[in-house]
Design a protein around this nucleic acid. Structure first.
Lengths: 142, 142
DNA sequence: TACAATATGATAATGATTATCATTCCTGAG
DNA sequence: CTCAGGAATGATAATCATTATCATATTGTA
């Protein structure tokens, strides 16, 4: 068996921002709901699961997600079908996506932490999260 | 001055697929037009620049881009505003994007080539390209 | 040369996201 | 404690990139 080449394991979030600042109840609810999801979720799906317990407008969910993104608490990724999926910034979640069938399999390693630190120094950018995604064709489709 | 930490330079495309197979004239035109662009371009923008010289339908441009993606000749990335930008698969183009103002600055290094090779071996996926994108807030916005 | 399959174009339809706007909530000054 | 100003919320209309549709044109082939 060959060793994993670029080996840093699943890197944890770079504590981008302190704990939640003054979030409104609605924003808190969105964050809490998102934290309970095992998988990244679309805004509409999140709205769906939230609406069961608490009434909240779809627009509010979108707005809260945008805000939470800006606070470094939530990250996003866009699927091939154009949906945006949101998840809490915790661990990196990277994917290998088939351009044909759209299936995404998670990638366990992440080789970019050093690069993040470097960019942060050289670009005067506060980096909250990153997406790393591989596109190709899975064997079933080729 | 500190050295660049994760140092592989701009990695070239992994010759995903041989030269162009039997592309139709329309598909060829799309590929050619895209090759002449210095920047990644949206499908509509590409259609715009193409329409000047050659009449082509917008739907055809979309279809050709999808096909070229499937052939490993073209890659895509999605902006914060939801547009999909296309470019020829040549060198990696990675970005640092401000979640506030949306500005994207290119990132010159790419630490994932080894990982690509590894994934290719362990996942029986044919990998054509990848996207690596950093999100945060630029100093002007924070 | 005629057929079957595929590509193309024009346009309608889709669907996720955003804008709008009236209402409600909250906070701080008085 | 009360009121005014600002922000947040919800319902819904509007937007806009992308996709589906379908009739027509093109291409490779028997």
């Amino acid at each position: 068996m060959d060793r994993d080449p670029s080996a840093e394991k699943n890197c944890a979030a770079v504590s981008a921002v302190p704990p939640p600042p003054g979030l409104t109840p609605g924003q808190q609810a969105v964050l809490t709901a998102l934290r309970q999801q095992p998988q990244p979720l679309s805004a509409q799906a999140l709205h769906g699961v939230m609406a069961v317990q608490r009434s909240i407008g779809l627009a509010t969910v979108y707005r809260a997600l945008d805000l939470l993104k800006l606070l470094g608490l939530v990250q996003h990724r866009v699927t091939l079908s154009g949906e945006t999926l949101y998840s809490v910034v915790e661990h990196d979640h990277h994917y290998l996506t088939c351009l044909q069938c759209g299936v995404s399999v998670p990638v366990e390693t992440c080789p970019v932490q050093e690069l993040v630190a470097h960019l942060q120094r050289t670009n005067s950018f506060r980096i909250y999260y990153h997406t790393l995604e591989f596109f190709g064709v899975c064997d079933r489709c080729s």
